[in-house]
């Protein structure tokens, strides 16, 4: 059913991605592919994987941006997967009902057996979070690892998305963003978490945390002020103060 749930549960599972921590190692990308290629749906195929012009479907991608700030240019690694939007346009445009948003936790999924591969959902997503599988010709997207997070066959600590589990720096956090008391909501509040392209009206569930101002820049700033202060005539009292002013008078 491609209508958005009329009475969604307050639960909104999603990710919080910390742009301050991500080092752009692509480990989450690889583990996402690894887990999801062996999961319930069709494998995530690759075309010409070892040759020129390779392509394939991936559910998570890392872009790297350069942000030119007032002081300098800063590199920001930027992981991007489905944001499990509250007002997901990809769901309502789907003609078959293959694309749907779960009532119980807000996860946006594709029923691959019903997908006709029209691609319209990907056209409607502002974030490029959906990719057509080149072999299966069905739409692929992040499942929020729905087959891990509720999977009782996995040890407790593994019941989080593969990307979250694998991130060596802990840049991805998973939780219920519909619950204001949850750890992830707390992080968003404390760090000023934000939405991507709010003007597109999708109300994403996933949030991003901004990079902090770089410590070495703040440090070098402080250092610069110090040196500057040293170079200026110091206000010393006593004997040396008298020498100083006397010399100054001599010209």
């Amino acid at each position: 059913m491609t209508m958005l749930p009329e009475n969604p549960s307050p639960k909104k599972l999603g990710l919080v991605i910390d742009l301050d921590i991500c080092v752009g190692c692509h480990a989450c990308v690889v583990n996402c592919k690894e887990w999801n290629t062996g999961s319930e749906g069709a494998p995530l195929s690759d075309i010409n994987a070892y040759g020129a012009e390779q392509s394939g479907s991936w559910l998570n991608r890392i872009h790297t941006f350069e942000v030119t700030t007032e002081k300098t240019a800063q590199v920001v690694h930027f992981p991007k997967s489905c944001l499990h939007c509250t007002d997901a346009p990809c769901v309502t445009v789907c003609p078959t009902g293959a694309s749907y948003k779960r009532v119980e936790d807000g996860i946006v999924l594709v029923n691959e057996d019903h997908c006709i591969g029209c691609g319209l959902c990907a056209w409607s997503c502002p974030y490029g979070a959906r990719e057509m599988d080149p072999v299966e010709q069905v739409m692929k997207k992040c499942t929020l690892c729905v087959d891990r997070i509720y999977n009782e066959n996995l040890p407790e600590e593994d019941r989080v998305p593969a990307c979250v589990r694998t991130c060596p720096t802990g840049a991805r956090a998973f939780g219920d963003l519909g619950d204001p008391e949850s750890e992830v909501s707390e992080m968003v509040r404390e760090r000023g978490g934000f939405d991507l392209m709010p003007e597109q009206g999708t109300a994403p569930v996933n949030k991003y945390l901004p990079p902090r101002e770089k410590q070495h820049l703040i440090a070098s700033d402080a250092q610069a002020t110090e040196t500057q202060a040293k170079n200026q005539a110091p206000d010393v009292a006593g004997f040396w103060g008298w020498v100083d002013s006397a010399l100054a008078k001599l010209g």
């Binding site: 742009l19 752009g24 990308v29 020129a52 012009e53 390779q54 392509s55 394939g56 479907s57 991936w58 991608r61 890392i62 872009h63 790297t64 941006f65 350069e66 942000v67 030119t68 700030t69 007032e70 800063q74 590199v75 920001v76 930027f78 991007k80 691609g119 990907a122 056209w123 502002p126 490029g128 990719e131 057509m132 080149p134 934000f194 939405d195 991507l196 392209m197 709010p198 003007e199 991003y208 901004p210 990079p211």
Partner: peptide, 27 residues
């Protein structure tokens, strides 16, 4: 606005996620 980093400064792509064109770019 796409990256939400506008408050920091101007945002330019430094590295694409992949060396080849993907389906999204093709489409």
């Amino acid at each position: 606005s796409a990256t939400g980093l506008g408050a920091m400064g101007q945002v330019d792509l430094l590295m694409s996620p992949h060396t080849e064109e993907n389906w999204l770019q093709h489409e």
